[in-house]
């Protein structure tokens, strides 16, 4: 397994070299907090940040995209996204979310061509977490601050040094291709990384989710759902900041001479998510929607994909305007 180390101060050199063949996307300080942006060697990359405000799914499954356009009886499919990207600085929880989204968008029966194209043309380099903070709980849902699965390479921020470790073949190739900037790391650097990873893991709380999928059907009719969701504003922030939420709506927009069909991220917490053509809404109460969200993530995806669709990133907890905390919800359910 290839490894490489460099001085953090030399990072712009790596960016310059890697940007020759691909767009280099990395975390930067944005107006709303840390965000991913295409950068050049002159830009300041963030290494010291909890997580980006918005999840990395947006890079593969954008807020909205055009599927096809039509004009004068002619239909034109939107062209597939082009160009290679290096996505640097993705936290392991977000990487794991990609593996989960793959199960949805790269399903055998129907492959989403837009998602697939982006996925195949993107090299994912994750950044291990040094200092996990509230409200992260990734280790409780099968992830961890230095989890490697799903990335092409993982980077450890060791203060002045950066340690790259290949995870996939594409990652190996990348590290080899950057021989100019990456050198064989000292053994103590590797040790330092392992120690940091262990320390980080120890900081994370353990939330009991064992058996949650089995428990959920039994409490379908429980009043606990409405009491959890009493204060829910149905604003939908949780679904938008969640790395694994993937519901979308299809909208047709008509212009004068033609129109287009677009796909838009949607959220099951919106009041109108299940409004039917008749006007009836089977999930008109916030408790019903809360129940649906939890059941989808902790039961139905277990049935369909053998996984809990939650990576413990904590974004829903910190973004909720009324502090609905999924950790508390899980605890209530387990009770």
């Amino acid at each position: 397994m290839a490894r490489g180390s460099m001085k953090k101060a030399d990072f712009p050199k790596l960016v310059a070299a890697a940007s020759e063949n691909a767009a280099f996307v990395a975390p930067v300080d944005g107006p709303s907090g840390a965000e991913f942006a295409v950068i050049g060697p002159q830009d300041d990359v963030l290494f010291d940040f909890g997580n980006t405000k918005l999840p990395v799914k947006r890079h593969f499954f954008p807020q909205s995209e055009v599927l096809y356009q039509y004009a004068n009886d002619e239909v034109r499919s939107a062209p597939l996204p082009e160009g290679k990207t290096i996505l640097f600085g993705v936290r392991p929880c977000d990487v794991r979310s990609l593996l989960q989204l793959d199960k949805v968008f790269l399903d055998e029966a129907y492959v989403d061509p837009y998602y697939r194209e982006r996925r195949e043309n993107t090299l994912v380099i994750s950044l291990a977490c040094k200092d996990p903070a509230e409200p992260c709980f990734c280790t409780s849902v099968g992830c961890g601050p230095a989890a490697r699965e799903g990335s092409d390479a993982i980077v450890f921020d060791l203060g002045d040094d950066l340690l790259f470790e290949a995870v996939s073949e594409k990652g190996e190739e990348f590290i080899r291709s950057q021989a100019e900037t990456l050198s064989e790391p000292e053994a103590e650097l590797v040790e330092k990384a392992e120690k940091a990873a262990a320390e980080a893991e120890a900081k994370l709380p353990k939330i009991e989710v064992e058996g949650i999928a089995e428990k959920l059907p039994g409490i379908f009719d429980s009043p606990v759902w409405q009491s959890i969701a009493d204060r829910c504003l149905s604003c939908g922030i949780c679904t938008f900041v969640c790395p694994t939420c993937h519901c979308f709506g299809i909208h047709d927009e008509k212009a004068d001479e033609g129109g287009q069909r677009i796909r838009v991220q949607d959220g099951c917490m919106f009041l109108g998510f299940t409004v039917e053509a008749s006007g009836h809404n089977p999930r008109i109460l916030s408790g019903q929607r809360m129940r649906q969200r939890i059941m989808h993530k902790f039961r139905y995806t277990v049935e369909n994909f053998s996984e809990i669709f939650c990576v413990g990133c904590g974004r829903c907890i910190s973004s909720c305007p009324v502090n609905i905390d999924v950790r508390e919800t899980i605890a209530e359910v387990m009770r």
Partner: peptide, 24 residues
């Protein structure tokens, strides 16, 4: 341009109580 159309502003606003918002 920062807006992600989550409609939290609308949902948090005490004055926004229309049964169906104009945008929907």
């Amino acid at each position: 341009s920062k807006c992600i159309r989550c409609y939290a502003c609308r949902q948090a606003c005490p004055n926004c109580y229309c049964k169906v918002c104009f945008i929907d």
